[in-house]
Computed example of a mutant assay.
Amino acid sequence: MQGQDGERDRCEARDGDGPGAADPEPRRGRPRSAAAERAILDAVIALLEAGEPLAGLSIERIARTAGVGKATIYRRWSGKEELFVDVVRDMEPIDPPVSGTAGLADLRVMLESMRTRGLAQRSSVLLVNIFAQMKSHPKLWQEYSGTVIAPRRVAMLEAVRRAVAAGELRDDLDVELIDDLFVGPMLVRTVHRPEAPLPEDLVDRVIAALLGGLAPVRV
C-alpha cells in the first residue's frame, strides 16, 4: 500500500497537482482524515449540483475542488465508481441498525428504511438525476448493486429466516419468495410508481396484509 501511495504521489508531482501543494494531511503514518473525506464527498456533490455529469468528473477535478491531492482520494477509494457509490450513500438516509436477532421486528425496520429512502429520493432532484446517470453506466451501477443493494437483500433474507425460525412466518414457503412478497410492495411504491403515496403507516399496512392474507374472511 505504501508503495502504491508513493507511486501516486510521484505521478501527482509530475502532473503539477502534487500533495505537497494541495494535500493538507501530515505525512507521518498517513492517517485517515475525516475532514478530508468530508471535503471530497462535498466536492463531488457540489460539482454535480453545478450540473457536471458523473461521466465528466475526473479525480483531478474532484481533488482540486476538495483542496486535496489525488493521492488523498486514492488512499480511500480505488476509483471513481467506489467514490460515487459513497457519495450516493452519503446523500441517502442512514440505514438504521437492526438487532440481528429479531425476525419480524428487524424486517419492519428495514422496510421502513426503504420507505424513508424513497421519500428522500423524491425530495431530491439531484438524487433522481444521479440514479438516472448511474443506471446508464453499467460499471457504476454494478458497484452500487454489489456494495449497497446486495447486502441489504442479504440482511432482509436473514431477518425472514429468523422470523420463520421464531414461528412468526410460515415455514412451508420458499424464504426468497417470502422476502419478495414483503419487498415487492415497497419497490412498487418507491421505484415503479413515484407518484404513489408513502404514508407513515405503509409498512405496518403491508405487513398486516401479508400476515392476514388476501383471501376474504369466511364466517
Rank of each mutant, 00 (worst) to 15 (best):
R61P: 12
A208R: 12
R75N: 13
R117E: 12
V188D: 09
A36V: 14
A22L: 10
L57H: 06
E195L: 11
G29L: 09
D9R: 12
V183A: 13
Y74F: 12
A208F: 07
G69K: 00
V203F: 08
P138I: 02
S33V: 04
D23H: 01
Q133E: 06
A120T: 10
F182P: 00
A13Q: 04
S99C: 02
E143A: 15
A215V: 10
R30L: 08
A215P: 04
P151S: 14
A36W: 00
L107W: 00
G29N: 14
P199L: 03
L48A: 03
L202T: 11
E25I: 11
Q142K: 05
D201K: 14
R161C: 14
H192P: 09
L127N: 04
P31F: 02
P194Q: 12
G213M: 14
I94G: 11
D171H: 14
V85W: 00
A208E: 10
V68Y: 04
C11H: 10
L157I: 03
R8A: 07
A13R: 06
A35E: 13
P31A: 01
W77C: 04
F182Y: 11
E92P: 08
D201N: 13
L47V: 01
A71P: 00
A208L: 12
P24E: 05
M1Y: 04
G100E: 02
G118C: 12
R218W: 09
G118W: 01
P97L: 05
H137I: 15
L83N: 03
K80S: 07
V154F: 01
I62F: 00
I207F: 01
R10A: 13
R122P: 14
R8N: 07
N129T: 11
V87Q: 08
A105D: 13
A50Y: 03
P138S: 09
V88I: 11
E112R: 09
S123G: 10
I59D: 05
L119N: 02
G184Q: 08
A215R: 08
Y144W: 14
G100P: 02
A22G: 06
R153L: 10
A55I: 06
M186A: 15
